[in-house]
Nucleic acid binder design. Structure first.
Lengths: 203, 203, 203, 203
DNA sequence: AATGAATGAGTCTTCATTCAT
DNA sequence: AATGAATGAAGACTCATTCAT
């Protein structure tokens, strides 16, 4: 088999196993026997188990990053709302297609390795900052209320994560894109105008 | 040393280590050497590492559950908003005091053990249902808009989790209760009326 | 409790456990919790687990030895046959009353300890020699055929052991002495005149 | 080394050690250091120490069973006596060649494991029944006296066991087949016509 | 490129024995 | 005399990694 192919094959089998059973409950044995190659072959393609895992994480973060686009606000652009929803949809679609990696993303790398942990932290921090900056910008443009932008950003990120988490446990693989788009829109709306009826406020 | 004391001591040392390095990177050896007792002593108090961990999780979930109170809506009661905030504050305070356990709660038990995993899942599911039911009730009382209550509930839960998560990484241990209360209020407000200025809507 | 009593109590509980589960599957914990004394108490009465076991074996061998009497052949004595049967009966009765020790005697001490093993070996060797000597004597008196006395002695010893072994597995505790006496007589007869009909020989 | 070879090597070293020191006094460490392989190698070939032991027992019982042939009584057949002696000789020869396993067979598996214990029990029970049936048949053909066939069968089995036991302790490895045959014949004769001279009876 | 037997450090767990109270 | 908490040596077992073929 082509080296490239074999590599990919190992990565895919590993991703599935890591996603299903976690890093520590997946042995190199499991991976090679799932991919049906010899044990030694594994080490022709990856320095060690940890490196393979790192590669999976790197690859996911790369693809995730590249499917998030900066929201353009100039006249010609599509509406910011649409752009935001599109971003969310792209993220959802990507992660729906790779549930295993989603599992890793949401919970997998903890206590595993300082370096990998840091990568995920950094990734989330960047997203957080992007959201926070957008909110701050919105405040400057008098579009956003005087909320604590830090908290608001955390809330948005957490909400998205949790919805994704629910995806993992749900039977149906949210494959209809219309449904995905609806969910993205729902989240956005909740954060835009809240859940209360107009004029109502919690006493 | 009194058995009760020793038990507690072991639980505390274990909680710290599990919190810091994760379940799999904490060996029984680590625990006993941290607690400065002999290896065999561990097994006088716990059947095995997994059981100790389970006990930590059980204990946390119990205390968490018991600090969440049903929101009362009758006249005499304090305002619902206050009650909601109080609930959040109690959760935050409890988890601030036990960062190690918070760490476990947010990420620790995955891929470890079906049973423990299920406990956490059940716990979160219950909370989720409670939030969802509140929202549905709010809709019946015309207080809550026609949002997707499932998504909204997930968003709230995720937001709270993420804020807690941020707590873990933050230097300062949010000990001023006023600050905690402020954050709880912020979250509530964000979900109540959203982040947008009155009258503004995302185009 | 009287020291003497406590000692006996521990010995009895230990004997039962050793008999039921073997030496290695009986822990000091088992013994003390069965006897309902503290762990440390055990070591007030016995230097260690092995010593207690040794004492059980010693005691049994002593009682066994003392219930076997040399067969007297002078005129005044009871018939040799009766004396032989009486010896067997005494052995059977003793071991029926202490099944636990019988179990140890037949199988227990192997691979446990050179010293204890040797004691059992010596015991059996003595018995073997006694039987062999009797047979040789019988040959000199023209009572016993020219059989290989070694083999014959082994056969007798083995037969007795096996019948005792069967006793262990049997439900009923052969308590009727008449029955015991019958079995002893049967064994003796088999070895005396064989199992074949008079005049018959295996072709 | 070829897997098959290594397996056999481990089995042989283990058999020797189990035979010499017993199951509980033989650690996996002992086995691997005797076989001069790494500790982990052991577990490539056997699930655990108990399984290896079970395999040794199974294998021995299988070979033993297959070297015992039903005695044929029709005209053309060799004399029953010869057939009986041949059976005994085959058993003796097999067990002489595998003293270690003989040791295990006679005493090793007690208190070790219900399942293995049962296997040995069953094996002996079958042999016992075969002997008993032969005796009963002999009685129907008026060849065998009215002895208690149960006791007689136990006596024969015990005698054979004890002679084998003596083999274990004897220096010389009864390798001359003539000698073995003689012993087998002796046993048979003792049980056929007893040890007493013709016409003599114990008074 | 691929194989898979071998390695051995590292873990969990047990249990006879000690000793302060 | 008695207690029972504590010890730590020893044993079973796992698994990432290596290396000769």
């Amino acid at each position: 088999m082509e080296p490239r192919e074999r590599r990919t094959q190992l990565l895919e089998h590993a991703a599935r196993l890591f996603g299903d059973r976690g890093y520590y409950n997946t042995s190199v044995s499991d991976i090679v026997s799932s991919a049906d190659v010899a044990r030694g072959t594994f080490y022709l393609y990856f320095a060690n188990k940890r490196k393979l895992f790192e590669e999976l994480v790197d690859s996911l973060l790369l693809r995730l990053t590249s499917c998030i686009e900066t929201v353009e606000v100039h006249e010609a652009a599509r509406s910011p709302k649409e752009q935001l929803v599109d971003n969310l949809v792209r993220v959802f679609v990507l992660l729906c297609e790779e549930r295993h990696m989603l599992s890793i993303l949401l919970r997998g790398a903890v206590g595993l390795d300082r370096e990998i942990d840091d990568k995920l932290q950094d990734f989330y921090r960047e997203i957080l900052e992007a959201i926070e900056n957008s909110l701050t910008l919105g405040q400057q443009m008098n579009l956003v209320r005087r909320v604590n932008t830090r908290i608001a950003a955390l809330a948005v990120l957490g909400a998205v994560k949790e919805v994704l988490h629910a995806l993992l446990d749900s039977e149906y693989s949210l494959d209809s894109e219309r449904e995905i788009r609806q969910q993205a829109t729902d989240i956005l709306e909740i954060f835009s105008i809240g859940v209360l009826e107009d004029g109502v406020s919690i006493p």
